[in-house]
Simulated scan of single mutants.
Amino acid sequence: MNRELRVAAYAVCIRDEQILLARWVAGDGTRKWTLPGGGMDHGEDPLDTVVREVEEETGYAAEMTALLGIDSMRRRYPRKLGMFADFQGLRIVYEGRVTGGELRSETNGSTDLAAWHALDRVPGLDRVALVDIGLELWRSRPALGHLRPQRGSTTT
């Protein structure tokens, strides 16, 4: 079994009772809303990662104002030649504030649309679990930056 670790950084950007989300496109074409953010490049600082990813996915320049927490998820999935991967995603979640730029969608990336959504409408969106995790971290601001584990999540 191949062990895979992916470290990523995401932003919870909220203004006027709305949250900024990007629509993630899975390999099978499924589309779900997620927090703007993504994987760290080797040698990159997580703070630089989240600022870069917010700009790539939404067109906005942003600054991070707080570290909300860290989430870890694990799943097993099939790979080529009958092998399986033991995947762990380590997600660093920041609170962010838009400082400039204009809303636009990413081209040739892992997302295809960026939009603001009313907070009270988030439960009705087709979304990945990370959106709920990010909102819970933003609302509760746990002292250790960690929520109770949410098992079975398959998010980006």
Rank of each mutant, 00 (worst) to 15 (best):
T58W: 07
Y10K: 00
M73A: 12
R31A: 12
L119D: 06
S110E: 14
A129E: 12
G134W: 00
L135F: 02
L113I: 08
Q18T: 11
Q88T: 15
G134Y: 00
D71Q: 12
R52D: 02
K80S: 14
A22D: 11
D132E: 14
R139T: 11
Q150I: 11
G152P: 03
T111Q: 05
A66D: 13
D48V: 13
D120I: 06
T58Y: 02
R141A: 14
T34R: 06
R6K: 14
R91H: 11
A26V: 10
A62S: 14
P46W: 00
V51I: 14
H146M: 14
T156Q: 03
R141Y: 07
W116F: 06
L119N: 06
T34F: 07
M40A: 09
W116D: 05
I70Y: 09
G82A: 08
M73F: 09
R141N: 11
L5F: 11
G109K: 04
L68T: 00
T155N: 08
L5C: 08
D126R: 15
D48W: 03
L125T: 08
F87Y: 15
E55K: 09
H42I: 13
D132S: 14
A129V: 09
R3V: 15
R139M: 04
S72Y: 03
A22S: 15
V51F: 03
D16L: 09
L20C: 05
A26G: 12
V12L: 05
S72N: 08
R97S: 12
Y60M: 03
R139W: 12
L113N: 10
G43K: 05
T30D: 11
S105A: 15
L147T: 08
V98S: 04
V25R: 08
P149I: 04
G96C: 01
E44T: 07
T65N: 07
E17Y: 10
R91I: 00
Y60D: 04
R151T: 13
A115G: 09
V7K: 04
T49Y: 02
G145V: 06
A66F: 04
L81E: 14
A129F: 01
M40D: 00
D112K: 00
T65K: 02
A8C: 08
M73G: 13
